[in-house]
């Protein structure tokens, strides 16, 4: 659905995005993860033809962008860097303006607007102008705008910004719903938890470069260690004695043991009279993967230290 090769964007001397090879497949819920200022928004803008790449190519729905924008964009719904609307007009009127600017027929307009509003939970919205909306309502309206055309591909930049926990759950359910119905979704975010709960595939961007791109399950694969719990620190100590050098860490009754065969460990421990309450294979966390990939010095995922996106 989305494929980029060596996509690069420079603003003056600053490279906002360098040599990016993105690969989003049909049916994915793809999480595009990176700290503020890492080039997420610039990438999304390039995919939508808003920003022209300095070099490299981007294909969306199998067609080159921005050259084929006229054919591609009617099948794409997008929310880029927060919603935007005409503040003095009502939400409904805003959607119908956006719809009129696109390709949709005039006769189906009211229906499309109603559907989109209903999908995001704004169907009961009144004639209030948008400038009187709460942040969460604006965010929902922005999503409704993206859904107007019943797109094959949804590109959403920070879609849960400003939403309360319930709103975040609603949006997550909506995205998974749409995905189940065949819509490919690209969600960019700086929030690990959000990506982890929604996405099946993840790309991590750091300082304009894609450092990780894989299925979430593969990224969170087993580490080859077992997390083992016994009862009380005394047993813990004895367990460490039994398992010997395979034990890598111990904290009271909890042990981290290298080895692929938990059954053998349990057998050995129980044979030695050490009760085992719990054994689970250790998995990598997305956070760990991201920190490993982005390396030292860029582990701060909340601050905008590069200021690129701020300028963009």
């Amino acid at each position: 659905m989305i494929r980029t090769h060596g996509l690069t964007k420079r603003f003056g001397r600053v490279a906002a995005v360098s040599d990016l090879d993105l690969d989003v497949r049909e049916g994915d819920v793809y999480g595009f993860l990176g700290p503020n200022g890492s080039g997420k928004t610039t990438t999304v803008r390039m995919l939508l033809g808003l920003v022209l790449p300095t070099s490299g190519t981007a294909e969306v729905l199998g067609r080159p962008m921005p050259a084929s924008a006229a054919e591609v964009l009617p099948q794409v719904g997008a929310m880029v860097e927060g919603p935007a609307a005409y503040g003095q007009l009502s939400g409904r009127r805003n959607l119908s303006l956006y719809d009129a600017a696109g390709r949709g027929s005039r006769s189906g307009r009211a229906g499309r607007v109603d559907d989109a509003l209903a999908r995001v939970g704004l169907s009961g919205v009144d004639r209030r102008p948008v400038h009187a909306y709460s942040l969460g309502m604006r965010q929902r309206l922005g999503l409704a705008q993206a859904l107007l055309t019943s797109p094959r591909l949804l590109v959403l930049d920070e879609p849960t910004n400003g939403l309360d926990p319930q709103g975040i759950r609603d949006i997550r359910a909506l995205l998974l719903d749409l995905n189940a119905a065949g819509t490919t979704v690209l969600v960019s975010s700086h929030l690990l938890a959000e990506i982890e709960q929604t996405c099946g595939r993840v790309g991590v961007i750091s300082r304009g470069r894609l450092v990780v791109q894989d299925d979430l399950d593969a990224l969170r694969g087993p580490t080859g260690r077992q997390l083992l719990r016994t009862v009380g620190a005394t047993h813990g100590e004895r367990a460490a004695g039994v398992l010997g050098r395979a034990v890598e860490e111990r904290d009271g009754e909890r042990l981290i043991v290298r080895g692929e065969d938990p059954a053998a460990m349990v057998a050995a421990l129980v044979g030695a009279g050490v009760p085992v309450v719990e054994v689970t294979p250790e998995r990598r966390t997305l956070e760990g993967v991201v920190l490993d990939a982005t390396g030292a010095g860029s582990d701060d995922f909340s601050t905008s230290d590069h200021g690129r996106e701020g300028a963009a």
Binding site: R45, G49, L50, A70, L73, P74, E81, A84, A101, G102
Partner: peptide, 14 residues
């Protein structure tokens, strides 16, 4: 400035 330009252009509007 209002942000509506990007949403109009991705409708798409030439």
């Amino acid at each position: 400035q209002q942000g509506t330009l990007r949403y109009l252009l991705v409708r798409p509007v030439g």
